[in-house]
């Protein structure tokens, strides 16, 4: 079986409704992104959060894409949490995006939003 690596992108969110730009490079030693997932420290914060995402300047998730489209709770097995429809080249390609908080009442700030990349095909 090909080598697999999981990479985390951490996004600091300071206040309700904040919109945070982020970028990260994928590991150069892996050829493919075969899935991605996301989590927040409090699952109640997920509704209304949006994630705009580009990989190597190609639009993956358009503006207004809701974070809930790529999240699951802990009852889902770890492998099934990954949104495997995303199949892109890694090779050090840049992941750019914008995370926007959903302003759900009762959420504690600041927090770290996390995006997980599954990389395969070690070079």
């Amino acid at each position: 079986m090909a080598d697999i690596k999981y990479q985390i992108i951490k996004i600091p969110v300071a206040a309700a409704g904040e919109s945070v730009k982020f970028s990260a490079d994928t590991d150069k030693l892996f050829s493919k992104i075969t899935g991605l997932s996301a989590s927040l420290p409090d699952e109640k914060a997920i509704p209304g959060c949006t994630l705009e995402l580009k990989i190597a300047d190609k639009e993956i998730f358009p503006e207004e894409w809701e974070l809930k489209m790529i999240t699951c709770n802990q009852s889902v097995t770890p492998n099934d949490r990954f949104f495997a429809s995303v199949q892109e080249e890694a090779h050090g390609n840049r992941v750019d995006g914008r995370f926007t908080d959903g302003s759900v009442p009762g959420i504690t700030y600041p927090y770290l939003a996390k995006i997980y990349l599954r990389l395969e095909g070690k070079i």
């Binding site: 109640k44 997920i46 509704p47 809930k68 699951c72 709770n73 889902v76 949490r81």
Partner: peptide, 9 residues
Amino acid sequence: SKVPTVKRP
């Protein structure tokens, strides 16, 4: 649903 999703849509 205002309950957080269990599974991804």
